[in-house]
């Protein structure tokens, strides 16, 4: 690896004298000077004040606004949020009230006032779909907040301070990665403590326990990339304490990749909840959710696929919008695209 291995000095000495005087050609070389009016001089390093000043986020927002992928996904997410918070705005049937279901309607198709037909229990498919939004979204949003807090803090500290904390985190991450999320969740969810108290929150806790190492890894990487940046060293040389430098400079600069992954993860958490519910280990039957509805509809899938397909469609579109959002954010926040 060392430059010493090469006898560069010997080589250079032999060639040195020739180059010192510069080269003079025997050919006639024309001396061309461009007319000044065609090549006007500009002051050295002039500040360009034409564009309006933009922060990183403002700049990303400007890019995002023009991206169809972002506009579509943002509108969809907005719509899903409204449905989740105010389901009563979208249907006058309250499916949580058992009296709205009638076995007379079992498996019936669409008719006036019931655009998507009925389930086996004779409940309105459309109303259940609308009311199921909240559970799925809650799992997605709160699990994401949980993994961001747990994984983000662990990852940031491990990346910034390194040492034993980092070593422990790395091993812990390996252990959790050795246990795929669904497998781990299956084991937890069938523990008595969880099985007997199933609710949205037990599902969230389970998914956080198995979801945080991924965010921790991403955060750790981003923090390591920034912790030795000159602007961090400069702040420390100004007298800022090491911890404050982490909070004020390193973390804000490490957010972009974490946000991208969080957005995509939100989608995968919703899928994970649905999968657990589908396996009968997720949300309790009392909670109305897309996963439960799909699971219930499964036995009739060949006779009456619509009952399965509608909640599946709602689920897929919601997940798709979060994944598309993450994709659009990734492009807009790409640091490579920003340097000029």
């Amino acid at each position: 690896m060392s430059e010493n291995l090469t006898p560069e000095n010997d080589l250079s000495k032999s060639a040195k004298p020739a180059a010192r005087q510069g080269k003079v050609s025997s050919r006639v070389i024309e001396h061309f000077v461009a007319p000044l009016e065609e090549t006007p001089l500009v002051a050295v390093d002039k500040v360009d004040m034409t564009a309006a000043p933009l922060s990183l986020w403002a700049d990303a927002w400007k890019n995002l606004r023009k991206q169809p992928l972002f506009i579509i996904s943002a509108l969809l997410i907005l719509a899903v949020l409204v449905v989740a918070i105010f389901p009563q705005w979208f249907t006058h049937i309250d499916p949580t009230d058992q009296s709205t279901c009638s076995l007379n309607d079992s498996g019936e198709g669409a008719r006036s006032g019931h655009p998507l037909g009925f389930t086996l229990q004779g409940c309105d498919v459309y109303a259940r779909m609308i009311y199921g939004t909240r559970a799925s979204l809650m799992v997605g949003v709160f699990t994401t907040i949980g993994v961001l807090l747990l994984g983000g803090i662990m990852g940031a500290l491990a990346g910034y301070y390194g040492g034993w904390l980092d070593a422990i985190l790395a091993r812990l991450g390996d252990i959790f990665f050795a246990l795929p999320m669904i497998l781990g969740a299956i084991i937890i969810m069938q523990l008595p403590a969880f099985r007997d108290n199933r609710s949205v929150w037990t599902v969230i806790v389970t998914l956080v326990v198995f979801g945080w190492p991924q965010i921790a890894r991403i955060t750790r990487g981003a923090v390591i990339e920034n912790r030795n940046a000159d602007f961090v060293t400069a702040s420390k040389a100004l007298g800022l304490s090491s911890f404050k430098a982490l909070v004020k400079h390193v973390i804000p600069n490490s957010m972009a990749p974490v946000i991208v992954v969080a957005s995509i993860s939100l989608g995968t958490f919703i899928v994970a909840e649905a999968t657990l519910s589908f396996l009968g280990l997720g949300l309790p039957q009392s909670v109305m959710s897309w996963g439960n509805d799909i699971s219930d509809a499964q036995p009739q899938v060949r006779n009456n696929p619509a009952v399965l397909l509608w909640p599946a469609l709602a689920l897929s579109i919601t997940v798709l919008s979060f994944i598309m959002l993450g994709d659009a954010l990734r492009d807009a926040l790409d640091p490579k695209a920003r340097k000029r």
């Binding site: 899928v271 649905a274 589908f278």
Partner: peptide, 10 residues
């Protein structure tokens, strides 16, 4: 993207 979004069981 669509394939990633649609759950495996669906």
């Amino acid at each position: 993207l669509v394939v990633i979004a649609v759950p495996t069981f669906v």
